[in-house]
Structure formats: C-alpha cells, structure tokens
Write a protein that binds this DNA or RNA. Structure first.
Lengths: 182, 182
DNA sequence: GTCTATATAGGGATAGAC
DNA sequence: GTCTATCCCTATATAGAC
C-alpha cells in the first residue's frame, strides 16, 4: 500500500467533517500525523489536489462496491440489495455524512463539479438500470432512482441535524421496501 | 424596517452560498455594502451572532409560512398544499439550497445545534400532524413526514450537484403526490 | 452609525536542513 | 520523505476618528 493510499481515508474524514473550506492544514496535519512539508511533498497541488484525490478514491470505492454490482449482477434484485447494504456500511448507519453531498452544497461544488456530478449521475443511472431489470417500468425506474438517491442524501442531512443515526436506518429500510415493491 | 432586519437576508445568502466557515467578513462586507466597523457595531458577537440571527429569521419565516399553516388550517390538505408551495418558493424551485441543511452537514452544526435541530423537528412534527388529520394512519403519517423532509433536503443536494433545478421540481411533485395518496 | 487603520492569529504554501 | 522555519496573505476582531 502506497503511503498516499493510506493517507486518503484520513484526509477524507477531515474534509467530510469540516468541509472543504473548514479543512485547514492544521486539522489535516493533526489527523494525518504529517507536517505541512510532507503533505506538500505528497500533494504539490495542496488542498485542492488532496480533495481531488479523495473524491477519486471515493468514486472508485462506489464504482466497485455499488455501481458495478448494480450494473453487472445477473440478479438485479441482489444488486440492489447489495447497494443498500454497502450504503449502510459506508455511511456507518447514519453516523457519517456524505462528503460528496457536503461538497455539492458548498462553494467547492464548482471547483470539483465533474467529480460531484459524476458520482451522483453514475449512481442514479446504475440504479435506474437495475430497477428496470428488476421489473419496474422504465419511467418509474427513473423516478424511483431519483427518489432513492435523494432519500439517502436527505436522511443523512436529517440524521446529522437531529444527531440521531437511527433516522437514517429507518429511512433506508423504507427506501429498500419501495425498491422491492414490484 | 430596522437596518438589521434589512441586513439579515443578505447575510443569509452569504452563509447559504459559502457555508459558515466559508463566509468571510470580506464576502459579507461585499454582500451588505457595510464595512467591518458597521457590522461589529450591529453584531458585537461577530459572525456567530450574525449566523444565529439569520437562523432565527429563517425559523420565523417557516413558522409563519409553513409550520403554522400545517398546524392550524382547518383543512389539513390545504395546509399541506400550502407547505409545498411555500417550500418551492423559498428554495426558488431548486436554485437555492437550504442554509439549515448546509449547517447541519458541517462542523457548525454543533455550535448551532438548537436552531438546526428545532427547525427540522418542528417542521416534521407539524407535517406529521397535518398528514394525520388528512387521513393517514398515525404510524404512516410519521414515516411519511420523515420521507418528505428527507426528500426535500436530498433533492436540494442532488439539484445543486447536477446544477439542474428541475430535479428539485420533479421530486417535489412526486412528494406532493405521496402526501395526497389517501 | 459608518468608516479607516490596526492588532493579532491563522490560513496556505515554500525553502532548505536533515 | 520528513521536519522546522519562514513567507505572505487573509482571517476575525477592535479602536477611534468622523
């Protein structure tokens, strides 16, 4: 494992918790145990490069654990079930927010527009395809995929607002049910 | 209208756009046309006080335009319809994100926990009551109120991520339909 | 009540020793 | 590859003239 690969999850947690603007190099050095010199040696582009690589790593994780199963599994329903499980794991059952969502809402969205847009877009598209293959009519699969993604993001917002992870679990359960309703 | 009251909406837009950490006094002076001296004269508590008062003003607006109608309208369905209309207006049909949601996701949540928690909580409670009176069974009204709030917040995230306000309008239409389905 | 000037701290980023 | 020291800029906040 390259030193950089070991670093990305720690960087991710800082950006996730404090947002792009709030993630100061001081916080980053504390979280990683590396001095600024080392950080700039590894990421000459500074904070922007760190964020880009974190986003890319998240994208890869979802591509492997979520999007690909949705697209490729013979059994579409199993792919969808796998998505819900992976989503619950990734967001720690509501104790963790979505870094891409945090970036999407803030001013950083524009600087990282491609990554932000691509993440949700490919998720939605893969999900819509699976729903379609699981028996939902085309138009309904499109709508439902939007509802499910929005439901997940919204539940993360509400769970963090209320400081109540269970809210996320409850929402996820109902979304699962809607996905299966056919 | 007090000078302070005229200021709050402008402050709100800065916090909404840049988040609490990202909303620098330089951006705030640009948006308000006031120098730092004037700002500290009006808000001795600095940024934190500005944010608190902005949150309070938003809370008042929703209390008047959304929560009260949900609670008090004789015709519960009319109250719900009014909520959707006011919500669409407030978020400019998806071109504006939710400041409380932005705060909820970030590190500022803890400093403004009461305002953030109260906003969603009272919204959800008022909506659940109206759904109940509109004919939804108690348990279902509770769940549906959570789904609708999460749907709204999530749609705002996705609409901004995709830079496509229509996504918000579509979602809102479907949420309206679910609220009416009984 | 508004401004300019200033104080002090922390921001991101770089240089160079080791 | 990591650190410390340092640069320059912007941050929040204050003081005091007008």
């Amino acid at each position: 494992m390259s030193p950089r690969a070991a670093l990305l999850p720690k960087l991710g947690e800082v950006f996730r918790t404090y947002g792009y603007e709030g993630a100061s190099l001081t916080l980053i050095t504390a979280a990683t145990g590396l001095g600024k010199g080392s950080l700039y040696h590894l990421f000459p582009g500074g904070k922007a490069q760190m964020a880009k690589e974190v986003l890319a790593e998240i994208d890869q994780w979802f591509e492997r654990e979520v999007f690909a199963p949705l697209r490729d599994r013979e059994d579409a329903k199993a792919g969808i079930a796998h998505m819900f499980k992976a989503t619950d794991d990734y967001f720690r059952s509501g104790r963790r927010v979505c870094l891409v969502g945090v970036f999407a809402l803030g001013a950083a969205r524009d600087e990282f527009a491609d990554a932000v847009q691509g993440y949700f877009d490919r998720w939605r598209e893969a999900l819509a395809g699976a729903l379609r293959r699981a028996g939902h009519p085309r138009a309904e699969a499109m709508e439902l995929s939007e509802d499910i993604l929005a439901g997940i993001q919204g539940a993360l917002v509400l769970a963090r607002a209320a400081d109540d992870p269970k809210l996320f679990s409850r929402s996820l359960t109902r979304l699962k049910r809607r996905a299966a309703s056919r």
